[in-house]
């Protein structure tokens, strides 16, 4: 695939900030004024990635990993320190105004709606800002309302909306002008389960029915598992994994764990073909080492120890992420996957 076939292409994208460090000791405040200590901090480090048109990808990582900064460079809000970035064929930070027509964004903890005005009035103001024709505005609102059920609260001032209601309006606001690419930075943070599911349905609809490209950052692993086929893991600003969820499971989550509770304290747990993840006398977590299966480990445990309760647990996505970070610690960023441009 060439660059033109991709919605988003980033090559060696880097962002470095200078921060002022505090002086210590006497007259620290005055010394900071005349002799500030400036420290360079690389937040995104040579990020290379691409997203195909109509794809929904998750950008994952722990707090401070560089997810939000990456999103802000992709949307053109921040200017990269070095590297290349193309969104819909444009350099976003150079062509901000033109770029704005083809992208939408929701930053979950920040609102673009007018706090004291009813939500529908805010959406009408966004209609004017994005110069959306009235016919398209009406159609979009009807479409969004069908899934997000906005009409129940869209005449309420934004300041009186619940978080879930507000974020649903934010979603509508971000897609009102029919953007091809949407960036969602932790959109469902703090929402209840019902609203989260409603939001997921809306996002699925936008990808499958409207053909939008969506880049999603989240800490909600259920959301990732239900929405995204492809995940990008970053940590310390570097890409640690780029591939499908299935590949992530195969490479970093294929080992289920056996959790066992003993009928009486056991001093040493020793199982052939497995390693002990944890053990506190009455309980243990045991993982097959690759030469055995979880069923083999269960059989061994039952035959060797007084077992009161036993079960097999699949590794969850958070554990897989941890495994990726640990396995890549100190190593080079992951190789680009097959969908990346040459």
């Amino acid at each position: 695939m060439s660059d033109a076939d991709h919605a988003i292409v980033a090559r060696d994208l880097t962002k470095t900030f200078f921060i002022n460090r505090k002086h210590s000791g006497r007259f620290a405040g005055i010394r900071a004024l005349f002799d500030p200590i400036r420290e360079e901090r690389t937040v995104v480090d040579r990020l290379t990635m691409s997203v195909a048109r109509g794809e929904l990808v998750a950008l994952l990582g722990p707090n401070g990993a560089g997810k939000s900064t990456s999103i802000k460079m992709l949307t053109g809000i921040l200017t990269p320190t070095s590297g290349e970035v193309y969104v819909n064929g444009r350099v976003p930070y150079r062509e901000r105004v033109a770029n704005a027509r083809s992208i939408g964004a929701v930053f979950g903890q920040k609102t673009q709606l007018w706090w004291d005005l009813p939500a529908r009035q805010s959406l009408a103001l966004l209609r004017d800002i994005f110069d959306v024709p009235q016919s398209l505005f009406d159609k979009q609102l009807a479409d969004f309302n069908a899934i997000l059920e906005l009409e129940e609260f869209w005449d309420t001032p934004v300041r009186n909306l619940s978080l879930g209601q507000r974020v649903r309006c934010e979603m509508a606001g971000a897609m009102l002008h029919d953007p091809a690419i949407v960036f969602l930075d932790e959109p469902t943070i703090g929402m209840d389960v019902v609203v989260k599911e409603q939001t997921r349905e809306f996002l699925r609809h936008q990808v499958t029915e409207r053909g939008r490209t969506i880049v999603l950052t989240t800490h909600d692993m259920t959301e990732v598992a239900r929405l995204c086929e492809r995940v990008l893991l970053i940590n310390h600003g570097r890409l640690m994994f780029d591939g499908t969820l299935e590949r992530l499971k195969d490479e970093h989550g294929g080992r289920p764990q056996v959790k066992v509770t003993f009928a009486e304290p056991v001093s040493v747990v020793d199982v052939p073909g497995a390693h002990i993840v944890s053990h506190d006398g009455m309980r243990a977590v045991v993982a097959p080492d690759g030469t055995t299966t979880a069923e083999d480990v269960v059989r061994s445990l039952i035959s060797r120890f007084p077992v009161a309760n036993i079960g097999v647990e699949e590794t969850n996505l958070e554990d897989m992420m941890r495994d990726v970070y640990l396995s890549k610690l100190g190593g080079e960023p992951t190789a680009p996957n097959a969908s990346q441009p040459a």
């Binding site: 901000r96 105004v97 004291d116 994005f130």
Partner: peptide
Amino acid sequence: RDSLSISVRDGTIVYWFLRPIT
């Protein structure tokens, strides 16, 4: 509340740069 000063302070300035007007 939607002034430039407060938008920079609370981070909602991001949206000012995501619109088809400067």
